[in-house]
């Protein structure tokens, strides 16, 4: 039987403009998350926020007698404002790891990751796994990292320790190239052969939607990690619906980001 874990906050600090990193210590029995999986987090004993919030696993480390989980979050509403005020030592309830993660394709010749804003969180964990993966030592790995401005760039330090070729871009040009991450990637697209490439992406909806458009008539495989408001995280509340293209078998047009995702084939999603 699975349980709700009680974790203890080890760190909770602003690492970029309105972006926080929370490190939570967990019991050693917590299962190693796969890249792309997420957890539901709630502050023990607080009436508000009432619902748990979903967070992608950004990093996971296992020590002898405990393990720790790193999560990124952007302070955006009441719930995350409350989270930002939590002190070291505060207890949180963690449910997870949840969802289907990325399919790690270490054997592909080219591995391309595209991250925008908070979408960096699951990609950093994926990048660390790909880096560890022996198969991928023969792969060329590229990371396209986008943010609004230099202050909002997250994850760059971690990435620099890994064997990725990194392209940075910002909306205002304050770091790296000026422009959108999808535009920068588009310029390089022809360097990659579709059959030898795997693309992973996570970021704001407009970014993923733009990427879908770029890849629409190509044969590049691409896995995207989506975000949606959710209440339960385990497939029951049906709150986190995402519109998918209808398959012949079923007439249902929505899937659950939590249980059917959060990682989807980019072509499966209806982008508006």
């Amino acid at each position: 039987m699975k349980n709700v874990y009680i974790g203890e906050i080890l760190r909770n600090e602003e690492i970029a403009q309105d972006c926080f990193l929370m490190r939570v210590a967990l019991h050693v029995s917590f299962i190693d998350p796969r890249p792309g999986q997420f957890v539901m987090l709630r502050v023990s004993g607080l009436a508000e926020p009432l619902l748990s919030r979903p967070f992608s696993v950004c990093s996971f480390e296992r020590q002898n007698r405990s393990c720790s989980l790193d999560l990124f979050y952007h302070v955006i509403g009441r719930g995350t404002q409350i989270l930002a005020g939590l002190l070291k030592g505060t207890q949180v309830e963690i449910l997870g790891p949840l969802g289907r993660g990325f399919e790690v394709a270490g054997h592909k010749k080219n591995i391309v990751l595209l991250g925008g804003g908070m979408g960096m969180a699951p990609l950093i964990y994926l990048a660390m796994q790909l880096n560890k993966d022996a198969c991928s030592s023969s792969s060329a790995m590229y990371f396209y990292l986008g943010a609004q401005n230099a202050e909002a760039v997250i994850g760059l330090e971690q990435l620099k320790k890994l064997s990725f070729t990194i392209f940075t871009c910002t909306d205002d040009g304050s770091m790296g190239e000026k422009g959108l991450v999808t535009q920068i990637f588009l310029k390089d697209l022809k360097k990659f052969v579709p059959g030898e490439t795997m693309i992973y992406a996570c970021g704001p909806k407009p970014m993923l939607s733009a990427l879908a458009k770029i890849l629409q008539k190509t044969k590049y495989p691409c896995q995207v990690s989506l975000e949606e408001r959710m209440a339960c995280g385990i497939g029951a509340c049906l709150g986190c619906a995402v519109a998918v293209k209808r398959s012949k078998k079923s007439s249902l047009a929505y899937k659950r980001v939590c249980a059917d995702g959060p990682v989807f084939d980019i072509n499966e999603i209806v982008w508006k």
């Binding site: 009432l50 709150g239 249902l252």
Partner: peptide
């Protein structure tokens, strides 16, 4: 079978939540 409503379908409100699944 019913497809349900388009998202967003839920929102937390003071001491509760709204749903339109």
């Amino acid at each position: 079978p019913r497809a349900g409503n388009p998202p967003p379908r839920i929102m937390e409100t003071p001491s509760g939540m709204l749903n339109a699944v």
